[in-house]
Nucleic acid binder design. Structure first.
Lengths: 193, 193
DNA sequence: TGTGAAACTGAGTGCATACTCAGTTTTCCC
DNA sequence: GGGAAAACTGAGTATGCACTCAGTTTCACA
């Protein structure tokens, strides 16, 4: 069981950083310290390996957000929205390779022909956007968020904002940490009643 | 001269949609209707071909935004900001393949080792973010945008919002057109004095 | 029309790749 | 300890790839 997990871990890193096509079984085996055959013993194909990683990623993200909701009292919907964004950014740091992987185009190419990929990606995006939406709805109910706000659409916009920051960080385009405060202020101005 | 342009056009489409590694010289030659050798006659390597595409893309984007600024009177900085976002989204539709290409990770991998890639990408991002910033500064000067707004950082945030919408469209994750109005309202609420 | 240069061709080359398989080692339960 | 199943191995195979090159066609201009 140990080798299978090592392969998953190293492959996640390699797929995220080098891409799918540029990750070879040979190199993956060398870096993991197993024989190349072992990879194909556990995961029938390279695509199967990628799918296993995606499934694990979905489980982890869904699990993390479930735990985020337990044991946490929110003062207001607006504040909850801000904390959701914070948590999203925190998670993107914690699961850096996996979030980088989720930004890789090849996942979306596979999802066009393989419904298992599609399903996992949908689960992840629905989980993320639902949480933003829940927070906004809470804010609409307690009056901390303006009645003009449409929950689902605004949830998607917030999501793109948070995700854009993650992308800046991952691509080294800009010092993302320096943007954090301004992002939070922008959200507040955008939503506030 | 005709074949060289055809290769650039087809290669842009293929790199954007299939990725760099999954685009083979053989297939590219077949789809373009030239011999494989012709590709390597005009562009010494596959990487050289990609660089030529990136250079063309940069020229086109910079040119488009220069023309956007000519012959256009803006009522206020806030309105100009909104028009910049609109124009960005319009351009992403007009140059769909090229914007898709700019979202591909392999460009950023090459830019780590090849300064020519890096330079072109920087030119593009600077051009885009500068325009958002200029519009915000104009709004700060004429009082249509709140004095609390920091121009550079807010420009980056606006950029990620607009770019997020483009990504939704390109990845078919959500009907991006349906988000347009909400995005514009979100920007106004965020910036307004 | 002749000529040199530029554009173009496609079979050929060597190398990297995903995946297989026959055999070996480890694990685990009686 | 025995024996069966599961885990693991790595040399081997067929395929596809980027790129080359010696030769042919097209072009521009005298």
């Amino acid at each position: 069981m140990k080798k299978k997990e090592s392969i998953l871990k190293v492959a996640t890193f390699m797929f995220a950083h080098k891409g799918f096509a540029d990750t070879s079984g040979q190199e993956l085996a060398r870096l993991t310290g197993v024989a190349e055959g072992t990879i194909f013993y556990h995961f029938k194909t390279k695509e199967g390996l990628l799918l296993a990683i995606l499934e694990k990623t979905r489980d982890e993200i869904v699990d993390q957000f479930e735990r985020f909701f337990e044991n946490r009292p929110f003062k207001s919907g607006l504040e909850m929205t801000e904390e959701v964004i914070s948590f999203y950014l925190y998670l993107a740091g914690l699961m850096e390779d996996k979030f980088l992987l989720l930004h890789r185009h090849f996942l979306y190419q596979f999802s066009e022909s393989n419904p298992e990929f599609r399903g996992n990606l949908e689960d992840i995006y629905n989980c993320l956007v639902d949480i933003f939406e829940k927070a906004i709805v809470a804010g609409l109910e307690d009056g901390s968020i303006s009645k003009e706000i449409l929950p689902r659409k605004s949830a998607l916009i917030l999501f793109t904002m948070a995700d854009g920051l993650v992308r800046f960080k991952n691509y080294n385009l800009y010092d993302a940490g320096a943007l954090f405060n301004e992002l939070m202020r922008a959200c507040r101005r955008m939503l506030q009643a």
